[in-house]
């Protein structure tokens, strides 16, 4: 069992407790492209949610577009359900500045007005720049200045949808100071 599997189990246990305690029937899950989708696919399968998984690509909602410009390929967002008045669990791989989550919330609200949005992340590496906290965290990781953490999929690291139903396919990569 890799670290990632362990962290996912940690998230799962907490999400399950909350679902039971708050009676969140009809929970909708949305993963943020790409790493968040990988984690969400695993959680989604384990929780046996009735609605299909939503996938969000926040490229059109970034606050740094005027500085870094476009990415050549943007897989369109796909929310195969109505978010109106629903409870949503938003999933991402790494919570850092919080800007991605800000963008994701803006996009979700362009689809409707959810009853609630909770946030689950595999890694919370701190250094938040916005008042955004995760409700479910797999692991709190303290990184040195200049270090980055990235989620990698074993079989197809560049591609879109690696086979992530097996355990141990996802690994964390920490890159050091430049």
């Amino acid at each position: 069992m890799t670290d990632v599997d362990q962290y996912i189990d940690e998230m799962l246990a907490n999400v399950k407790t909350t679902i039971a305690a708050k009676e969140l029937s009809e929970l909708l899950m949305i993963g943020i492209h790409t790493g968040g989708v990988w984690i969400a696919e695993r959680l989604h399968k384990e929780l046996e949610l009735q609605h299909p998984l939503g996938k969000l690509n926040i490229a059109f909602y970034r606050d740094d577009f005027s500085r870094i410009g476009t990415h050549p390929q943007v897989t369109p967002s796909k929310l195969p359900f109505d978010v109106e008045d629903k409870h949503i669990l938003l999933v991402d791989d790494v919570l850092h500045t919080g800007r991605t989550i800000r963008a994701a919330l803006n996009e979700i609200f362009d689809y409707g007005r959810p009853a609630s949005v909770r946030l689950a992340v595999l890694i919370d590496r701190g250094e938040h720049e916005l008042p955004i906290q995760a409700d479910f965290v797999g692991k709190i990781l303290a990184l040195k200045p200049g270090e980055h953490v990235k989620l990698c999929a074993a079989e197809n690291p560049e591609g879109d949808s690696p086979k992530i139903d097996k355990q141990g396919d996802l690994t964390l990569e920490i890159t050091g100071t430049e």
Binding site: F60, Y61, P72, Q73, P76, D110, Y111
Partner: peptide, 20 residues
């Protein structure tokens, strides 16, 4: 053409607008 493909999805949503 690829980039346009992702924008085509925006026009099919209820809110046909992104803040780019």
């Amino acid at each position: 053409l690829d980039y346009a493909e992702s924008f085509a999805a925006v026009s099919e949503r209820a809110v046909k607008k992104v803040p780019l």
